[in-house]
């Protein structure tokens, strides 16, 4: 891995090898044998297959704005409910994207999901064409089942993290933040590559409107504990984006102090 600035020479030979380029690298389309130009600053990441016939290069860097890519897994907030589709917001100040009511598992004209404004979904970007509205879908393309997509229930907490950190959490199995967290509490997590994380420790907070038939006093005590744990865990995850891996334990202990 090397640090690349915009306009630098990437130092990748593309003569003998089929190359795919990812985020941060640009090539003038249509013209053969033009150089690859980095358009972002960041760490150069090249992956080759075993035979050495194909390679993929992209620049790993952090940005504030989320730009969708097809098959990204994202968390979106429903901001509008219409007859045929939902309007979903992936990040504040971005344009809305659409989520069709048909883009759910087993959805038919009669069997449609019932989502309300303000609820959040875990979804996959199914189409991204810069000049058109981006589309999401809430099922696993290969099986047609829900595959973990769909409504994220309201008992979990949603918070924002940096985009590169979300990618790291989602794709780097050697990244120990979540494993360390699992030593402290049980949790359910959904990581959106758009920098949003849904997290629930224990049962989270009670969902409003859903009456609980159990003893209410007992419920109260339980949910306060879960609420505290969830917030502590969220705090730990948020703080870990600013410290080196050696300090994770320290941050974890500090976040869970008094619990």
């Amino acid at each position: 891995m090397s640090v690349i600035l915009p306009g630098d020479d990437l130092g990748i030979s593309t003569d003998q090898i089929e190359t795919s380029i990812g985020p941060g690298i640009y090539k003038v389309p249509g013209i053969k044998d033009t150089k690859l130009i980095p358009i972002n600053g960041g760490l150069l990441n090249i992956q080759r297959n075993k035979q050495g016939t194909r390679q993929a290069a992209h620049l790993e860097s952090n940005s504030r704005r989320y730009i969708p890519q097809v098959s990204d897994m994202v968390i979106g907030t429903i901001v509008g409910v219409y007859a045929e589709y939902y309007k979903v917001l992936l990040q504040n100040f971005l344009s809305n994207v659409t989520l069709s009511v048909m883009a759910f598992p087993n959805a038919t004209k009669k069997n449609r999901p019932n989502l309300r404004q303000g609820q959040c979904v875990y979804a996959r970007v199914s189409s991204y064409i810069p000049d058109l509205e981006t589309e999401l879908e809430c099922f696993d393309l290969s099986t047609g089942k829900d595959g973990g997509f769909g409504l994220l229930d309201e008992s979990g907490y949603i918070f924002d993290v940096e985009l590169n950190y979300a990618r790291e959490l989602l794709f780097n199995p050697g990244f120990l933040v979540l494993e360390k967290l699992s030593t402290k509490c049980m949790f359910e997590i959904a990581i959106g590559i758009n920098g949003k994380i849904w997290l629930k420790c224990g049962d989270g907070v009670p969902i409003p409107g859903k009456s609980t038939d159990e003893d209410s006093d007992k419920m109260d005590v339980d949910y306060v504990k879960d609420l505290k744990t969830t917030l502590a865990a969220a705090n730990y995850i948020k703080q870990c984006q600013k410290v080196s891996p050696e300090q994770f334990d320290k941050v974890l202990a500090a976040s869970f102090k008094g619990l």
Partner: peptide, 17 residues
């Protein structure tokens, strides 16, 4: 572009609870 900051029900619940 959206000019408003949207807040999800989840965040609202956690803040209020």
């Amino acid at each position: 572009m959206n000019r408003t900051v949207e807040i999800s029900n989840n965040e609202r619940q956690y803040v209020l609870q």
